[in-house]
Design a protein around this nucleic acid. Structure first.
Lengths: 130, 130
DNA sequence: GTTATTGTCTTAAGCAATTAATACAATAAC
DNA sequence: GTTATTGTATTAATTGCTTAAGACAATAAC
């Protein structure tokens, strides 16, 4: 997994985001065991507590669960994962449209801008950079 | 102007964002005089230094300029404003698409989701809430 | 020319959140 | 039963943001 952080948001919340994306995108399949908090922390280059904090919140959401000393696992509930994916998408869509409206764009302008961009972006569909 | 802040980002950077949107959306027309730093700060409910910090950065970008004691003004350079608007839009578009691709959506799925959403959102075009 | 307004700068203090260090608890593995 | 691994909890240090108070400089307004 490729970890990268900006300094615009707390690291722990960026961890939450990235792990969540990993789950809903299928990079971490349902039921799969995650590396230990310590290993993940080392891999991501953060303090174990920071990773732990992210995990705690993901657990609250139900996307992962921990088994005392056996480790931590992705939920097997595929519906929940689908819902999480849908919610994330909805959030992005809504925020995006709101931002564009605030800038003064109309619906049709947004659509045409998007079409241009998707065409350019089209070839590198898999690795979207960012 | 309606000021509102989340606790996800520093207030000063939210100020920058909101003022910038005010300029590129035409709420603050080119050449218009802005209220004084002290007044804006009072209006937004922040410390004058925080508002000053935002203004300093906006000035670096060139969107506003200050005239010693006469006050601070929106740039008259309409091209610059247009460019800023285009850049903001590009940024939102790129970030949005990248996020959706990361979630595992394909181009056509994104398009159809967006169309659904714009139809729902359509009626309240002006005040996009958020 | 005096005054009030405005932008600017400096210093410091307070506060909240994040990160770090370390210790503890439970249990799987052997 | 011992050990190593894991999740968890506690406490402390650090960091950055915000606010505060105040002074200075320039000039528009009168």
């Amino acid at each position: 997994m490729r970890w990268q952080f900006s300094n615009e948001l707390p690291i722990y919340s960026q961890l939450i985001e990235q792990i969540k994306v990993g789950v809903v995108s299928g990079m971490f399949p349902p039921g799969e065991r995650l590396p230990s908090v310590r290993d993940l922390a080392t891999e991501a280059g953060v303090n174990p507590n920071t990773m732990q904090r992210a995990m705690t919140e993901l657990e609250r959401d139900g996307l992962v669960y921990s088994q005392r000393t056996a480790g931590r696992f992705v939920t097997e509930d595929k519906v929940m994962i689908e819902n999480a994916k849908r919610d994330l998408a909805q959030h992005h869509i809504h925020a995006f449209l709101a931002a564009m409206f605030r800038l003064g764009f109309q619906r049709d302008e947004i659509a045409s801008l998007l079409q241009q961009q998707t065409q350019e972006e089209g070839l590198s569909n898999v690795d979207s950079g960012m």
